[in-house]
Simulated scan of single mutants.
Amino acid sequence: MNDFTSVGERIKLIRRQNKLTQIEFAQSLEISQGTLSEIESGKAKPSFDVLAILAVKYMVNMNWLIINQKAELHIGLQNDELKLLENYRNLEDIAKEELLDYSNLKLLRYQRRDDSLK
């Protein structure tokens, strides 16, 4: 991950990992596609507000994002959690809904089991 030397390159990496167009990604960051293009190409620097939105929405480690500090790209997620997230993002919308329904049912089942053991 630390091969991406500029903030713009790291932002581009995040966009590509999330399989978003520049327009989609820019909208999620509340900036224009032109501004995003300039940031990714190194012609402009992102504002702190943009970096903060990106860090929260995409669960990105701010130290890695800003200064390329040797840190994990994503904060607080284990490898299996990242894999689940990646798999989820690759699903069609209907499959995402089904998966969420299934996970909610499993969670309820485990909560009920825990409640009965008390």
Rank of each mutant, 00 (worst) to 15 (best):
103 S>M: 15
87 N>M: 11
97 E>S: 14
109 R>P: 03
13 L>I: 03
47 S>E: 04
50 V>R: 00
6 S>H: 02
103 S>I: 15
109 R>N: 08
71 A>P: 03
63 N>V: 06
19 K>C: 03
81 E>A: 15
14 I>Y: 03
94 I>G: 08
88 Y>H: 10
107 L>M: 11
20 L>V: 04
96 K>Q: 03
70 K>T: 03
27 Q>C: 14
44 A>D: 04
75 I>C: 07
91 L>M: 09
105 L>M: 12
8 G>Q: 00
39 I>E: 09
58 Y>G: 01
73 L>A: 13
20 L>A: 06
54 L>P: 00
39 I>A: 08
60 V>L: 02
101 D>Y: 08
41 S>A: 07
76 G>Y: 05
15 R>L: 02
50 V>D: 02
83 K>V: 14
57 K>C: 07
34 G>Q: 06
6 S>R: 04
94 I>W: 13
4 F>D: 06
41 S>N: 06
59 M>H: 12
45 K>M: 09
89 R>I: 06
108 L>E: 11
101 D>K: 11
60 V>I: 05
106 K>Y: 02
75 I>S: 10
9 E>A: 10
45 K>C: 05
114 D>E: 10
25 F>A: 03
17 Q>L: 15
82 L>P: 04
41 S>F: 03
55 A>C: 10
111 Q>L: 05
33 Q>R: 07
7 V>R: 05
100 L>F: 12
102 Y>D: 06
102 Y>M: 08
95 A>L: 13
40 E>R: 01
50 V>G: 02
89 R>S: 10
1 M>N: 08
70 K>L: 07
7 V>M: 07
33 Q>G: 05
89 R>L: 10
11 I>C: 02
91 L>G: 02
44 A>C: 05
62 M>I: 15
4 F>H: 14
21 T>W: 05
81 E>I: 13
94 I>M: 11
38 E>V: 07
30 E>F: 11
7 V>I: 14
70 K>W: 04
31 I>E: 05
58 Y>C: 00
62 M>H: 09
13 L>W: 04
72 E>V: 12
62 M>K: 08
38 E>Q: 13
102 Y>A: 05
19 K>A: 07
54 L>R: 01
101 D>C: 09
88 Y>A: 13
73 L>S: 08
28 S>R: 15
72 E>F: 15
8 G>K: 00
98 E>M: 11
32 S>H: 01
63 N>G: 04
98 E>L: 11
60 V>N: 01
42 G>L: 01
34 G>M: 01
10 R>F: 10
18 N>Q: 12
87 N>E: 13
109 R>I: 06
107 L>R: 07
43 K>D: 00
